[in-house]
Amino acid sequence: MSKEHPVIAITGSSGAGTSTVKNAFNHIFGRVGARPVIIEGDSFHKFDRKQMKTAMELEDKKGNKYFSHFGPEANHFDLIEKTFKQYGEKGHCDRRYYIHSDEEGAPFGKNAGEFTEWEDVGRDSDLLFYEGLHGGVKDGNIDVAKYVDLLIGVVPVVNLEWIQKIHRDKEQRGYSAEATVDTIHRRMWDYINYLTPQFSRTHINFQRVPTVDTSNPFIARDIPTQDESFVVVRFQDHKYCDFVYLQDMVAGSFMSRPNTLVVPGGKMGFVMELILREQVEKMLKH
């Protein structure tokens, strides 16, 4: 890990709510004057959209029903490790973007589902900030987590995660619930073997737990609101948290274990900023 060129990574599944933490960090970066290099996890996919469709069809013909964006066959885990390591040592790295829409691709002359060219970035930055699926992944000799100074996990209970994904895919991407359920099933092997283990390596986990019935996520009409939830915040080490201060600041919060704080769901963004701003400021002092 690097004190001079720190690396922050948010890791979580598709539909987990990593964008909430990303927004909290964006507010923090603005308030403390930090200049981050933003790295998106999608940029490390091995295949563009057309290539992925072809690869998936070939895997289906082989009888492999679990080929997905979550696993090593469809991602450059080695390049994530290389990027984090290079930035930590030199303060710059290579970056590209995965284009999600034609509007997003217009400035680059690219279409939805394509990649931009790799370019060297970060020479005037203060830190690297990654958001994606594999910020703490390990696979064989590859150990991405080793090069992360602050690793944040975003892990709703799994039924809530699925509800969020089904609704997001329908509203933002036009997918049917059936298509999303098929995707969830396809990804399950890689989810268990490559995503879930990351959350034992994180420095801080944020897990939203609904207080309403989510027992059948595939028929849920609504996403439980934050006010219908609690957020369980687990710390790897006490150095990442002043529990007395946080309980004084957040009404209704309590400790459920010596390293775990529970807060009302409506306070999630506020608590994230309280906890994470202190960590960013410590990094920038080195």
Rank of each mutant, 00 (worst) to 15 (best):
86 Q>G: 10
160 L>F: 05
139 D>H: 15
74 A>W: 06
198 Q>Y: 06
93 C>G: 11
194 Y>H: 14
90 K>Q: 12
138 K>L: 04
158 V>Q: 08
198 Q>S: 11
158 V>A: 06
97 Y>K: 13
80 I>G: 02
137 V>E: 10
104 E>W: 02
118 W>N: 08
131 E>R: 03
209 V>S: 04
192 I>L: 14
179 A>H: 06
133 L>K: 12
182 D>T: 12
188 M>R: 05
206 F>A: 08
119 E>K: 11
192 I>S: 09
197 P>V: 12
131 E>C: 06
151 L>D: 09
106 A>Y: 03
138 K>H: 14
210 P>V: 07
128 L>E: 09
144 V>M: 09
184 I>Y: 05
212 V>F: 02
107 P>C: 06
160 L>R: 06
127 L>C: 13
93 C>F: 02
141 N>M: 13
109 G>N: 05
112 A>T: 04
76 H>M: 05
82 K>V: 07
204 I>S: 09
95 R>K: 15
199 F>S: 11
205 N>R: 04
148 V>G: 07
99 I>K: 12
82 K>A: 15
125 S>T: 02
197 P>H: 14
148 V>Q: 05
198 Q>H: 08
101 S>W: 04
115 F>W: 08
211 T>N: 06
95 R>N: 14
92 H>R: 13
111 N>W: 01
143 D>C: 08
148 V>L: 03
206 F>T: 08
167 H>R: 10
78 D>P: 00
106 A>K: 14
192 I>A: 12
162 W>E: 12
181 V>S: 05
131 E>D: 15
113 G>S: 06
151 L>W: 10
179 A>I: 00
135 G>N: 03
142 I>L: 11
152 I>Y: 05
164 Q>P: 01
103 E>Y: 03
178 E>M: 08
88 G>S: 06
107 P>R: 10
73 E>S: 13
187 R>Y: 01
115 F>L: 11
140 G>M: 10
79 L>D: 02
179 A>E: 15
146 K>D: 13
127 L>P: 08
211 T>R: 11
108 F>M: 07
143 D>A: 09
183 T>P: 00
142 I>S: 11
81 E>M: 08
73 E>V: 00
71 G>Y: 03
163 I>Y: 04
